[in-house]
Design a protein around this nucleic acid. Structure first.
Lengths: 215, 215, 215, 215
DNA sequence: CATGAATGAGCCTTCATTCAT
DNA sequence: CATGAATGAAGGCTCATTCAT
């Protein structure tokens, strides 16, 4: 009974440490984040991190894995084909889902910020991010692009188009702070996201069609 | 002549500190960067930073301004209209110049990384980056977009298109590490940059034309 | 019992830091004192000060409060009326107690030096010294003076007399170093202190009586 | 002519450094004072101190000597007998002069504060203060006391009385900060100084008379 | 299992001093 | 004679980590 209770307690502490660490790492970056602040937010002891995860670096890796699991539970369909028939419709749905995930703002949405940081300043944990999160997404977009460009499309042109689509979405996330300052009135929330998704989809479909014809 | 040499000596130390600081700030970020490493690379004493710049923060700001000047000297035409007549041609030239600046790789190219960091984790110096570097660029792209979308284009649609164009360029810079790992064979150097610029230009022109017709 | 020992350990480190800090602050003054020397004397790590007290300033304040408590335990009757009937006797007892406290010499007697420093070069903690130590003393002396000057004494004349009495005592403390050099043979220890107290009491009583008659 | 001009300039810089150093040492104490602030106030170069005085410590000693000279010029009569016939009158004049010198407040009055610091925290320069400033003063007071106590007075009783008189004066200087806080309304300026001098003189004369009779 | 106390390395900054001119 | 630039030795403080319980 003691073991059971303590095991439950341990799991809860672990979870709280992961959530707190996710927030703090997202806010300050790996090096600037302090284990003290993480423990404070998690309501845990300073030493508990070393007890549960060994050290700061292994905590960080655990956080990235945890973020992946959490995200999969929340958005299970992002990297899987949806039921729509037309690839145009599939693109539209993908862009909207992706944008929504990127721009969703809540204290729990430290996820994307962590990934943005890994892009700019990769840590040893970047392979986790690449393998577990980027690759499925990339494949999904490539599939859509391929069906829009036609069978004769080269791998290079598929990659170029993939990046053109993805870049337009992640831009709003990566450059959020710059956008906020360049266009203070512009807020990417709710209906604005839908409008943005429509633009990106239409813009990209036109680009893809032109590319398909040229090739 | 004595005065000249002494003046040169001071200027040289300052310059070396700025270059070293640019590299170190780009590699580790503002907080994680240490003045010790900066001075080590500059071959200067730890105290020299405080003599020349006051403190770490003012050194950082000086580095940002210095980067701006250096970049202006290297790419003087990026934010100014060029001689081309057609806006299509202007877009093409802009994209190529911008991409080149972003992807140019050398030990001296810490500039873009610094800005990428400011996007993800703004410091108190972000306004300098926005005002002195982003705004001129943004205006240049807006001008091109406006002439392509026609006089009836709304400010919203101009902004959306501006971001679509810029995002496709900065993506290769911001997400370089991810791209490197997703497509290990792809290197954005020399002729590849031109090919990329062609794609982005064509893709965007098609997107803009479709947008112009819809509106 | 485990808890007790652990508790004792913390208390011991804190106590040792306070004692060491008291000595070092008294010897060098707040600014010139270094946390390194304090920790060295306390046999503790440099970081322990920041663990226990936050920073140097809060350590200093803690030292002042600690000195107050220690002094209260040692001389509990200094600022309280004693059993003597006549105010003359009360003055005599006060002067002797005060002088004794001021001139007592031991490695533990950093207390007075700290206060003397606050007089010459007040830190932000001076209000603590004033409120917790000066005011009770001042009130005690005023009470004695008032009963000697009579009910018609003005507040000004009470204050003047208060200062005349107190000044004669603190002089031996504040100017100890000068006295030592002007009168090398004079040592204010043991019986000398009693003789001094007798002089100050008689001198002051005569002064007070003259003042009472004039008024 | 070059030598003459430079000699004059040198003398002026020296003087300005001494004045500035006097102020800064008085404000912050020897260790906390910085040569930079001194040079800044003197409008001189950081290196000029080492040029004119060698190092910080020798500057400090030079400041003490300079203070002595300056003070002798300003108050030439303090330690010399004045023309009054009665010792009572001599005491009164001495007390008033001494108090005035101690309480005079101006940016140039760093003199007394420096001495007060030497009392609390003697530096290696204390002997200068003792020999050149204290001893003449002490002798003057002893002479007055001796003539008031009569020929049979012991050296001990003369010393006790000397200290009783001097202490009442220096108290207002040494404990100025405490007095300011205990009696915020009390300002020792102009007429208040005269009133204070009257009190101290009367108080002390009564004390001395009582002492003379007892002996 | 978990905790509060303690550690030592390292950070930015400041200082008196010296150097080259 | 005098200066601005440069230096190295601290200084206070913070951090991730470990220890004793």
């Amino acid at each position: 009974m003691v073991a059971l209770k303590s095991d439950t307690s341990q799991t809860r502490t672990r979870q709280q440490l992961l959530e707190a660490a996710g927030q703090v790492f997202a806010e300050h970056g790996y090096r600037a984040a302090t284990v003290r602040e993480i423990c404070l937010r998690a309501g845990a002891n300073v030493a508990s991190i070393h007890y549960h995860f060994g050290d700061k670096e292994r905590l960080y890796i655990a956080v990235l894995r945890y973020a992946h699991e959490r995200s999969n539970e929340a958005n299970p369909d992002l990297s899987r084909p949806n039921d729509s028939n037309s690839p145009e419709e599939q693109l539209k749905i993908f862009v909207r889902s992706f944008l929504t995930q990127l721009l969703e703002r809540s204290p729990l949405a430290w996820d994307g910020k962590l990934i943005a940081r890994e892009m700019v300043e990769p840590t040893s944990a970047i392979d986790i991010v690449i393998d577990e999160r980027m690759k499925p997404l990339s494949k999904r977009v490539r599939d859509i692009v391929r069906s829009l460009l036609g069978v004769n499309a080269t791998e290079d042109s598929i990659r170029e188009s993939e990046f053109s689509i993805v870049s337009q979405c992640v831009f709003y996330h990566h450059c959020r702070e710059a956008i906020l300052r360049l266009y203070p009135k512009f807020k990417a929330t709710g209906p604005e996201i839908d409008k943005l998704a429509d633009h990106i989809t239409a813009f990209s479909l036109a680009g893809l069609k032109a590319k398909a014809q040229r090739k």
